[in-house]
């Protein structure tokens, strides 16, 4: 696997994403839910909200990197707040 040039941070990154996917799949099987309509006026399930959270988090991180000039963990705090908002209102 040398050619993939693994590093600890990227490994942690992928483990977190994979765990999120596994946890949400398990949740979807264990506690099935009906889609709901939130502030975006579109039907979303728990999985949709996870996708919106992850995609939004990527853009928040990029915007933070480009505009703020502050340490990157600050973006993670914003992402967590964003995730809570998405799961609560979207």
């Amino acid at each position: 696997m040398d050619w993939m040039a693994w590093t600890t941070p990227t490994a942690i990154f992928f483990v977190v994403i994979a765990s999120l996917l596994i946890v949400f799949s398990a949740l979807a099987i264990r506690f099935p839910e009906t889609p709901r309509v939130g502030v975006l006026r579109i039907e979303t399930t728990r999985g949709d909200r996870l996708f919106i959270t992850l995609l939004g988090a990527a853009f928040i991180n990029l915007a933070w990197l480009a505009l703020s000039g502050m340490p990157q963990w600050g973006a993670l705090i914003v992402c967590l707040a964003y995730a809570v908002a998405v799961f609560r209102w979207v």
């Binding site: 040398d2 050619w3 993939m4 040039a5 693994w6 990227t10 990154f13």
Partner: peptide
Amino acid sequence: VIPLMTVVNYSVQDTFGNNQF
């Protein structure tokens, strides 16, 4: 999936060839 993961790995590293990162 695996090629995409490799791209993520490359994006945080520098290489001068010879598969050294």
